Every structure is written in structure tokens, then in C-alpha cells.
Amino acid sequence: MIELEKYQSGHYEKAYGYKYFVPTPINEEWVWRTSAINKLLEKAAVKLGELNSFARLVPNIDLFIQLHVTKEAVVSSRIEGTQTNMDEAILPMEEVKPERRNDWQEVSNYVQALNEAILELKKLPISSRLLRQTHNTLLQSVRGEHKLPGEYRTSQNWIGGNSLADAVFIPPSHTLVNDLMGDLEKFLNNDEINVPALVRIAIAHYQFETVHPFLDGNGRIGRLLITLFLVSEGILDKPLLYLSAWFEKNKGLYYDNLSQVRTKSDMLQWIKYFLAGVEQTAAQAVNTLSNVLELKAKIEQEITAEFGRRSNSALILLNSLLENPYTTIEKASKTCGLSYKAANDLVAAMQQKNYLVEITGQSRNRIFIFEQYLNAFKAD
């Protein structure tokens, strides 16, 4: 049993010319006397419950999930230095400027990795196998493609600094990774301990980032782990909660709180910070979904009232834009089964109503985005 207030985060071991940190295994019963945790836990659980209920009531929730996932991919990748924004992330690769395609690919891989992992959860529990599979997808054809995609590291890594000599933090030796990750996996799936799911994933996220089991992509996989766990536990039916925006809002605070656990064994503060993040992020997700539903209803009403013969095609195009908020005349023509000229007229009518905004400034090969919808996701 680990008493939160007496928790010892680990110890250092010597290697040749440096010391690495070995975290304490976490697969134990955790208990605490600090009642503030219970209050934060309750608030976070209530907001998560609201988000889940809200999502169940939203018709076609899957339409909106894709943009939630895209936003998460953009923000989580931005924490790692990737520059793609939401407007670019929704476009197909051929529409992205060549010099921006590598960053676009990283975000695209993240979306694919998350979507595949959610499907895999139907067959696999949260496990090393699932995390390695997800990591493999994440690193395909991008910067980290030579850093053992889909495999735990077989050499020492470090965080911050240019080398082991000036590193800010040195995770455990690669020889310990399999055992530590096995312990983390058991902790997440252990039915014999009474640790609330949100406290469990807070501790597991800290442990994952401390073990740093991969040579690259640890931050993104560690953040994905949070969403995957909530879905696997049935706390969320759909992947609608992402903490990357909370962590990114004050990156320094995120890293400081993780660091305080390692240096001062202050797991208490980390869990408080994490639970506050869950509460605020779930509330923002409900807010975003409410705004999006209002926007959809308002535009559908306007189209029905003002678009006459075109209203049916306009509603079909609107539905397609809710799933992926960009179009071209060719795409609109295919989506709605219209001739090029009729599609051009329809897009022009939707542009006039400010539903669509042209983003290339060209007279040919024009790209239109559903800006109001994108802005609803950017707002939080």
C-alpha cells in the first residue's frame, strides 16, 4: 500500500558518467488523508459525467468527434514543436504547401494513431502491445521514423539539454523499461485495488512520462494514454476529452508539476493539477459541443428558409462540412451529386452567407473552409 503523503518517487542509479532515475513501481493500493483530493475528484467526475451524457444526446456525435481529434492532434504535436494549425490539418496533403507537409504528416499520423487505438480497445485492454502499435503509427514517415517505431527503447535517452552530460532529466536505463511498463500496465488493469480511475490515470501518466519508454513520441503517447484509458474504462463512450490544451496553456507548470514528483515526491500536487485539468477541460468540451449544435441548428434553419430549390443540396454539403470542414468545387459536386456549375453556384451562395470562406486567394483551385465551425473548436 502506498500512502500518498508518504510516497517516495524513486532513486538514482549510477551509469558511466551520469545518473539515471528509477521510479518506484506504482501497482499498489493508493490511499490518502488529504481531503482536497476527494473534492477535486468529485468535481472532475461530475463534469466528465456531464460530457458523456451530453455526447449521448447529440445526434451524429461522430461528425463532431473528428474535429475534436484533429484539434487534439494539432495541440499535442505543437507541444513537441510542430507548427501545423487547424486550418491546415483539415486539408488533404496535396493541398498543403510542400514546406509544411512534414508537420502536417505528424498531425495526420496522430489522428490515425488515436482512431486506430480506439478501435483496438474493443479487442485489447490498455497494454504495452496497444501502446507500441499506436507508437508505430505515430512515427511512420516522419522525423522519428528511425527511432524504433513500435518498440521500447534499447538505449539511454534524456530530456532537455543536448546530451546526457547536461540533461535536465535522465529516465531509467533501457534495461528497466520492460519491467516498469509491465508494472504500469498491471496498475491500469488491476481490479483488486480500489483506486479511482481518474487518480489511477493521473499517476499512470506521470509514471509513463518518467519511464519515457520510447526514443521519440513519449509526450504524445503519454497524452493519448489518458483518453484511451477513459474510453477503456467506460467513463467516456467516445474519445471527447483531451488534456493537451490544458497542459499546453502553461507548459512550464505542466513540466514543473511532473518534475516536483521526481525531485520532491510531491504526487499530491500533480494529482490536484491533473484533476483540475479534467474538470476544466470536460466543461470546455461541453461548451464547444453546445456551441456547435447551436451553429448547426441555426444554419440548417437559414438554409431551409432561404435556399429554395438548393436547400437539399446545401444541407447535404453542410453535413459533409461538419465531418470535414473544407471543400472545393469538385468535392462539393461529388458530395451533392451536382454538375460543376451547379456546385459552383451552391458554394457561391454559401460563401455569400459566410458559411464558407475561400482561403487561397486564387481564381482557380480554390479551397473553402467552414470557418465558423472551425472557430468553435479553436475557441476553447
Rank of each mutant, 00 (worst) to 15 (best):
A276S: 14
Y255P: 10
K272Y: 14
G234A: 15
E248K: 15
S259D: 07
R262T: 06
Y242F: 12
S265L: 11
D256M: 13
I271C: 03
L258V: 03
N250H: 14
T288F: 00
K251C: 09
T263G: 03
L253V: 14
S244C: 08
E279I: 04
S244G: 08
A276M: 12
A276W: 09
L243A: 03
N287H: 14
L240C: 04
S265V: 06
V278T: 11
A245P: 03
K238N: 09
I271W: 00
W270Q: 04
G234K: 11
V292E: 01
N287W: 14
G252M: 12
L275P: 06
Y242G: 01
A282L: 02
Y254A: 08
G252H: 12
Y254C: 12
G234I: 15
Q284C: 09
I271E: 00
A245I: 14
L240V: 02
S244P: 03
D237E: 13
Y254T: 06
K238M: 09
Y255D: 11
L289D: 05
I271T: 09
W246N: 13
Y273W: 11
N257Q: 13
V278D: 07
V286R: 05
V286G: 01
L258M: 14
L253D: 11
T288Q: 05
L253S: 11
P239T: 03
A283S: 09
M267Q: 03
E279Q: 04
Q280D: 04
L240K: 01
P239Q: 00
R262H: 02
Y255V: 11
Q269E: 06
V286Q: 01
A282D: 08
K251H: 12
D237K: 14
L268E: 05
L241P: 01
L268A: 08
Y273E: 07
L293M: 09
L289H: 00
P239W: 09
F247L: 15
S290M: 15
L236Q: 04
D256Q: 14
N291K: 13
N250R: 08
W270H: 05
F274N: 06
N250L: 06
Y273R: 07
N257P: 05
A282R: 05
A283V: 00
T263L: 08
G234Q: 11
